[in-house]
Design a protein around this nucleic acid. Structure first.
Lengths: 186, 186
DNA sequence: CCCGTAACGTTAGTCGCTAACATTTGGTGT
DNA sequence: ACACCAAATGTTAGCGACTAACGTTACGGG
């Protein structure tokens, strides 16, 4: 239960940061500048976001995705289970996007250092999926390969979405379709 | 043409760093400690390695891989071209591994922050592949998806190799086989 | 309208990394 | 063997991300 005050400052930090990042670039913007623009102290910035890149990169979807993957038929090959699981989870995530999502993704798409930060989040998602599949008796390496490939394809679509007018769900479906077994409908 | 002295110090830094990383962990080791152990100044460390993680993460293979991908039949779907290209490049890379390769990979496999650093390198490789495919008329998003998926699968195999007794080439072939169209031999 | 508590500020410090300039070292050619 | 010049290293000073401990403000519920 975050107090109203917390939400206000958090929103001011996010606004200031997004504005500065878009105007002068992520790397050229310091936390001090963001804090000044938001009318706070650098210290306070770090109380709301653990790192500078956390303003742009957040993933609260790991459990949801892992569960969706686990819900797919256990008889399927790992790659298919992950692929179908991601497609299923897509429906739950897409409508939730807040209004800053696209701006954030566009910024991440531009800076390699930010993509690396985003990779840490993807990595966590991958571990969650692997853990779920291993619990079902899937070989650990096979699970890691399937999860890594599907998440990488999804990420590629996500980054393209940041700088394109298309619908996110369409791009992700197109990405995962490329990993489908030859001649499959979904 | 690196002077002999340069090679010596470089080797001493690498030895000291690997030793410290393995004994007390990557994050817990400072550049100062590495410099002391190597009998040099922190400044000199950065003259040989641009960043702390560069001791462990290096990729001089981008052009080689991009070329191998481009050499595959242009009629194939992008995913197949990248997949076969990586398999072809594998033969050229594997014999070149130096003796510290496995120790370095094992360390990278342990720390999420290091995996992120490695992701920057993978990202560059992906861009190289995409550029090559786009030059052949392939759609940019399709190319990015194919490259991202294949490289992610390969990376998963590489990280597994760090902590397993298996042969690297075997693991990579197994990884890429999962992305093959249903019922293909290679 | 008061009061407790959450939110914020202050200070001081570590670590990764960089720039500009001075200094040493080592291999080369005589 | 010796002197020389360039390459390699050291010195100092500094920035930016991030953390810890502790004191201070101000907001919102009663």
């Amino acid at each position: 239960m975050p107090t109203p005050r917390t939400l206000r400052t958090r929103a001011r930090i996010l606004d200031a940061a997004l504005d500065l990042f878009e105007r002068q670039g992520y790397d050229a913007t310091t936390v001090n500048q963001i804090a000044d623009a938001a009318g706070i102290t650098p210290m306070t910035f770090f109380r709301h976001f653990p790192t500078k890149d956390a303003v742009l990169v957040t993933d609260p979807y790991d459990p949801l995705i892992a569960e969706a993957v686990g819900a797919q038929p256990a008889g399927l090959p790992p790659l298919e289970r992950v692929r179908l699981g991601l497609l299923a989870a897509l429906g739950d995530i897409t409508p939730t996007e807040d209004s800053t999502a696209k701006r954030r993704v566009a910024l991440v798409a531009q800076s390699p250092s930010l993509r690396a930060a985003a990779a840490v989040g993807t990595d966590a998602t991958q571990q969650a999926i692997v853990a779920r599949l291993v619990a079902d008796g899937v070989d650990r390496l096979d699970a890691a390969i399937a999860a890594a490939a599907c998440l990488a394809a999804t990420t590629a679509a996500l980054l393209a979405w940041g700088t394109a007018p298309d619908d996110l769900a369409v791009l992700v479906r197109r990405a995962l379709a490329q990993l489908a077994p030859a001649g499959a409908t979904p």
